[in-house]
């Protein structure tokens, strides 16, 4: 039925060297070629990073698949910060959320799916981030080494991965209250070690 002719948006020019925001604009205009470039550019490191959170390669690949499908559908919602030519943080947000929903699907199918939260770039350059960027070179490295693995995992999920307490509880498979207390204890330890 030709009731409405599909309005063809003008596709911005793009190439293999284009920065992420331009590629995402092209993806939003329906260019699968731009998505392929993004996939080539970002899939390897996203996969390497997700592998630290999930050891099942099937679930990993499924999560990555869903990630890029979500990019395909939501590319228009990406709003770059002025001067930022990189969508890495935004992609990671989507990837970790997709991994959580994959794990949840497998683990307990009876939990009703809650509506997914909108994708916003997390890992904004916060104070914690600035410290984390220099883990190797600052005293934080030694302090983190001294934490127990459980506390470290809690810090990693909430601070580094930028997850909410609820999401962290899902990926670590512990109750939300435990996440909270572990984060509090870890932060207290770190404060002690760093002062």
């Amino acid at each position: 039925m030709k009731l409405f002719r599909r309005t063809r948006r003008r596709v911005p020019p793009y190439g293999p060297e284009s920065p992420d925001p331009e590629l995402l604009a092209a993806v939003a205009a329906g260019e699968s070629g731009a998505l392929e470039i993004l996939h080539r550019r970002h899939a390897p490191w996203l996969r390497a990073r997700l592998r630290y959170r999930c050891s099942d390669p099937d679930q990993l690949d499924a999560a990555l698949q869903e990630t890029f499908l979500a990019v395909w559908r939501n590319a228009g919602s990406f709003t770059p910060r002025p001067g930022d030519t990189d969508a890495g943080a935004w992609l990671w947000t989507i990837a970790i959320r997709q991994l959580i929903s994959q794990l949840r699907k497998r683990a307990n199918r009876w939990i009703a799916d809650s509506a997914p939260e909108p994708y916003e770039t997390i890992g904004d350059a916060s104070a914690e981030d600035m410290v984390l960027l220099n883990i190797e070179h600052g005293p934080l490295g030694a302090a983190l080494h001294s934490l127990s693995p459980e506390l470290r995992a809690a810090i990693q999920a909430t601070v580094l991965d930028g997850l909410t307490v609820r999401e962290a509880a899902q990926i670590l498979q512990i109750p939300e209250g435990t996440v909270k207390t572990r984060v509090m204890r870890a932060k207290a330890r770190l404060r002690e070690a760093l002062t």
Partner: peptide, 29 residues
């Protein structure tokens, strides 16, 4: 180890040139 991984991840998130160093399995891609 975990701490180095955290450090690498925090760096990779903000550094596109380093991301290209991550080895890519062409067949998998």
């Amino acid at each position: 180890d975990d701490v180095t991984a955290m450090s690498v991840e925090a760096h990779l998130m903000h550094c596109a040139p380093c991301r290209t160093l991550v080895p890519a399995d062409q067949e998998w891609i």
